Amino acid sequence: MKIYIKYMVSLRCKLMVKKELEKLGLHYTNIELGMVETKEEINDALLLELKSNLALSGLELIDDKRSVLIDRIKNVIIEMIHYSEEVPKVNYSDYIADKLDYDYTYLSNLFSEVKGITIQHFIIKHKIERAKELILYNELNLTEIAHKLNYSSVAHLSNQFKKVTGHTPTYYKKIGQKRKSNLENL
């Protein structure tokens, strides 16, 4: 049985879900971001208990098909940007359509209708969040970050970064270093 879970976007969330399944004596065959596949069918009473236990951790079961698909789109994007070693070099539309086995136009229209932003804007926001993380880690320079996130150039990354955050990547890095030194001086 497949169960779809909203807000399950990190490895920590996966661990919480595993723990809750084990508490209820349920066996799973697969756990991915936003989805669990159990070996057995789950009766309504157990499903209700799982739902309330997960709610305590900030997670929600999803049963509406449109919501399930929206959550799957978001999870594919989050996994692609935040958990892949490198962002795929193919068109994002092809990547998402292939991963979910749906027509991209349908996915795009549904996402825009429900979320109020385009998939492309959602991807850009997450790429910039990832860039912010990488800038603060200070392990990669801007050229390496641009390459890792599949930007055509540092200028392209910088332009999008400034459009989303209101600051240049260099300024953002300075702010991060200043905060770090202030915390160390406490």
Rank of each mutant, 00 (worst) to 15 (best):
M1D: 07
I3A: 01
I3N: 01
I3F: 01
Y4M: 11
M8L: 08
V9K: 12
S10K: 05
S10Y: 07
R12F: 11
C13S: 13
M16P: 09
V17E: 02
V17D: 03
L21Q: 03
E22V: 10
G25H: 04
L26A: 07
L26K: 08
H27Q: 14
T29D: 14
T29R: 14
N30H: 11
L33H: 06
G34I: 12
V36M: 00
E37N: 08
T38H: 00
E40S: 14
I42R: 03
I42W: 00
D44W: 10
D44T: 15
D44R: 14
L47P: 01
L47R: 09
L48H: 07
E49Y: 02
E49K: 14
L50P: 06
L50A: 07
K51D: 14
S52T: 13
S52G: 07
N53A: 10
N53P: 12
L54C: 07
L54I: 08
L54Y: 01
A55K: 13
L56V: 10
G58S: 04
G58C: 05
I62W: 02
I62A: 03
D63I: 11
D63K: 11
D63A: 07
D63G: 04
R66I: 15
I70Y: 00
I70C: 01
R72F: 01
R72M: 11
N75P: 02
N75Y: 00
V76C: 01
V76H: 00
I77R: 00
I81K: 03
Y83T: 13
Y83V: 14
P88N: 02
V90Y: 04
V90D: 09
Y92K: 06
Y92R: 09
S93W: 05
S93G: 12
D94P: 12
Y95V: 05
Y95T: 05
Y95D: 02
A97E: 03
D98Q: 09
D98I: 08
D101K: 14
Y102P: 04
Y102A: 09
Y102I: 08
Y106M: 13
S108G: 07
S108L: 03
N109Y: 07
V114H: 03
I117W: 02
T118A: 05
I119N: 04
Q120M: 10
F122P: 11
I124P: 13
I124F: 06
K125D: 15
H126L: 08
K127M: 08
R130K: 11
K132F: 00
I135G: 00
L136G: 07
N138K: 13
N141R: 05
N141G: 05
T143D: 08
I145L: 03
A146E: 05
H147Y: 10
Y151V: 13
A155E: 11
L157Y: 01
F161S: 08
F161M: 06
K162V: 08
K162A: 11
K163S: 12
H167F: 12
Y171C: 06
Y172Q: 09
Q177Y: 01
N182F: 09
